[in-house]
Nucleic acid binder design. Structure first.
Length: 257
DNA sequence: ATGGTGGACAATCCA
């Protein structure tokens, strides 16, 4: 079982790269964030024509999450609940076989003094409540993945001291992330890739960020112990960094036996 | 350098 995540920053622009990657790596599941397409504009026909299923919810211009899978996703739901649907384009939950997949696009937060940053912290807290309301980490196989907009450890940023404090790398957000992950998640990425310098995001706006590997690990794959115990490998992919329309995020994927 | 680049979409918002 191979499960992957990618912040695509527009599914329509990145669709050729996504379809090529699906053909090359043949995962069972690919979780996408920032699809930036209303549901009527989601390229479902192109995806099903290549033999894939999809579940998705988006909006014009912003946000949007999707799960592409070989088998039809089951028990599909959206959002954290209790907010009138406001978070439905940031969280999609599907079941694939006996694995519950929670794909999130956590709010970025803009800057430390912004209301959006307070919203980000609140969002992570509500996400922990969502997990607690839906799963038992001791018995359920749950995969939490996506663009979490948190670099939790110093080694998750090219230069921790230089960027601290940042909305994705500061005391408040690291603590909020740990509280949510403390529900019972194992960091599957770090379990298999303990060496420094492995990132998932290189800022478009920082010059030569990719050439100098000034990256961030903000895209994550975590799993509850019953699933984490089955993990065999984790990788990041270089393909989108060489693509005709390169993304600033890359594909991250994990193998489970 | 309060910038930079890229995406959506048509003047700015978001990352």
């Amino acid at each position: 079982m191979r499960l992957a995540t990618f912040n695509c920053n527009s599914i329509r622009v990145r669709l050729p790269a996504i379809l090529d990657w699906l053909d090359q790596y043949s995962p069972d599941v690919l979780a996408l964030q920032e699809t930036k397409a209303a549901d009527g504009d989601f390229p479902l026909a192109e995806i099903t024509a290549r033999g894939w299923q999809a579940a998705y919810r988006g909006e014009k211009s912003y946000n949007g999450v999707a799960v592409i899978a070989r088998r039809p996703p089951e028990n599909v739901s959206f959002g954290l609940g209790g907010d009138g649907g406001a978070s439905e384009t940031r969280l999609i939950r599907v079941d694939i076989g006996d694995i519950a997949i929670v794909n999130t696009y956590v709010p970025q937060g803009q800057d430390l003094t912004s209301d959006k940053f307070a919203f980000k912290l609140e969002w992570l807290s509500r996400l922990r409540s969502f997990f607690a309301a839906n799963f038992n980490p001791a018995t359920d196989k749950v995969l939490w993945l996506g663009d979490l907009n948190v670099a939790p450890e110093p080694m998750d940023v090219y230069d921790s001291k230089a960027v601290w404090p940042h909305v994705c790398h500061c005391r408040e957000v690291v603590d909020a992330f740990r509280e949510t992950a403390g529900f019972g998640f194992v960091d599957v990425f770090r379990k298999h890739l303990p060496e420094p310098g492995v990132y998932t995001f290189w800022d478009y706006r920082q010059r030569k960020s990719l050439e100098l590997n000034r990256g961030w690990r903000i895209d994550h794959i975590l799993a509850t112990p019953p699933l984490a115990g089955l993990s065999r490998a984790c990788r990041v992919d270089a393909a989108p960094r060489r693509a005709a329309r390169p993304s600033d995020h890359t594909f991250v994927y994990a193998d489970f036996s």
